[in-house]
Design a binder for these strands. Structure first.
Length: 278
DNA sequence: CCGGAATGAAGAT
DNA sequence: TCTTCCTTCCGGA
């Protein structure tokens, strides 16, 4: 799950749960213990996401920088020990919790992150400076990024995953977006017509917010329609996603019937339909 | 119980 | 291009 939509949703949940309140920080697993001690009891101000990176701003010019990596999770939930005094310190811990945040109403448990570090606001700005355009922050593809895409011979499949160009797109969105636009991932980026680049970007800008909202990567037209219909009726829109190619190797492409293949690109699993992606 | 795989990315070679 | 790290879950023995 951790592609950009997950992190943006998480930023919202962290902010709703903790912003404006003093928070107990701890590190049951131990590897964030020193920083947790420095943060403990401080007031959380806000949380924000850029691509797959999360920043939790804490009073005293402190920023917790988190990246979930491939299998990190950050579960935020209400706890049952709501009282008028201190946040409870005896909530049960399950598994390896790198960082725990607790206030009077909520607990957040971070497991398996690739990054969990206490940094300064300036250091967080540096992280952001190294990240490309985020479809969840920028409605329009910045010209600087468009120019770089128009110039590079690197494969469009690799470029879409390059966080310094496009921030937040991961393996699932990449596979499905390239299939939606009938594009072979191996096509050099500079050979992709400008109109197609724009169409892919606009698609991301439309689809990723639905991912934030539902917690699912919804990309097929029928899933999207169904989720939007359910949301309009007051539901969560949590439709079970149907992918065209992602992890569907050996199965027929829903558009052309050709068998979906799995290969490796830049060390990552790549799924595509040899029949209709050119 | 063990091995493998997973939506990620840095660092070494 | 490769190895390594982070943690959980699932299938096969």
């Amino acid at each position: 799950m951790p592609e950009g939509h997950t992190i943006h949703a998480l930023a919202g949940r962290v902010e709703d749960a903790f912003a404006g309140t003093p928070v107990r920080f701890s590190s049951p697993q131990g590897r964030f213990a020193e920083s947790a001690a420095a943060l403990d009891g401080a007031r959380v101000e806000s949380a924000e996401a850029h691509g797959k990176h999360l920043a939790i701003h804490v009073e005293g010019e402190q920023v917790v920088h988190v990246h979930l990596g491939l299998f990190g999770r950050f579960g935020v939930r209400q706890h049952r020990r709501v009282d008028r005094g201190e946040p409870p310190t005896d909530l049960p811990v399950a598994g390896q919790v790198r960082m725990r945040m607790v206030n009077r109403t909520h607990v957040g448990d971070l497991r398996g992150p690739i990054v969990c570090e206490l940094v300064t606001p300036a250091e967080w700005r540096e992280v952001r400076a190294g990240l490309g355009a985020d479809p969840l922050r920028d409605d329009r593809l910045p010209d600087a990024v468009r120019d770089r895409l128009a110039r590079t011979r690197r494969a469009i499949g690799a470029v879409l995953m390059d966080q310094s160009l496009v921030a937040g797109v991961g393996n699932v969105y990449r596979a499905e977006l390239l299939h939606r636009h009938e594009l072979d991932p191996h096509t050099p980026a500079r050979d992709v017509p400008a109109g197609v680049v724009t169409a892919i970007w606009d698609d991301l800008v439309r689809l990723m917010p639905l991912g934030v909202r539902t917690g699912r990567i919804l990309v097929s037209d029928s899933d999207v329609e169904r989720a939007e219909f359910l949301i309009a009726k007051g539901g969560t829109g949590r439709v079970r996603p149907h992918y065209a190619v992602y992890r569907r190797h050996g199965k027929p492409c829903p558009r052309c019937g050709e068998t979906v293949v799995k290969e490796t690109m830049a060390g990552r699993n790549l799924f595509r339909c040899p029949g209709c992606q050119h």
